[in-house]
């Protein structure tokens, strides 16, 4: 039996009737146009599906859509502010923190979570803070540089 839910994503409200078993990541990706949130694994390991749920990073593959009823979410598509890239997006670009780009939306949002708790992280802090996100292309090094760069940019703001 379907359940009515109302989820605000990137400032827009989505009211839908969903099967209770539907994973949040599938709900988001099936809305049409919000496919930046990726499914990279099925065991909550890779972090490609990371989104901000009421401001907090969660793995949307390990969350049912019904659990997010009433929540306000940010996906990668909602991170830029009216066309101006978020400093983390700028930093990933500037520091070559991505190659194939598949892990990148999740990696950026996990980095967002990291900087929320620790605005001035060391390289080791960054490496530990990203332990829930896998990247197969970059060896993480430029991701670490990007997060550090973003932290500096945000500090100057």
């Amino acid at each position: 039996m379907k359940v009515p839910i109302d989820i605000t994503i990137n400032g827009r409200s989505y009211q839908r009737d969903v099967e209770p078993r539907q994973l949040l990541v599938h709900f988001i990706r099936d809305l049409g146009g919000l496919t930046g949130t990726k499914v990279g694994c099925d065991t909550s390991q890779c972090g490609s599906c990371t989104v901000l749920l009421d401001g907090v990073a969660v793995k949307s593959c390990t969350c049912l859509a019904v659990q997010a009823d009433g929540a306000s979410m940010t996906t990668i598509e909602g991170l830029a502010d009216q066309g101006t890239l978020h400093p983390l997006q700028e930093a990933f670009w500037e520091k070559h923190g991505l190659q194939c780009g598949f892990c990148t939306p999740g990696m950026i949002l996990a980095s967002h979570e990291l900087l929320r708790h620790n605005p001035d992280p060391s390289d080791a802090d960054i490496r530990h803070g990203l332990e829930g996100n896998l990247c197969r292309c970059t060896g993480y090094q430029n991701i670490v540089r990007a997060v550090r760069h973003a932290a500096d940019a945000l500090a100057e703001k």
Partner: peptide, 9 residues
């Protein structure tokens, strides 16, 4: 436990 996103939920 797990990772930051897991610990959030």
């Amino acid at each position: 436990i797990g990772d930051p996103a897991v610990r959030n939920r």
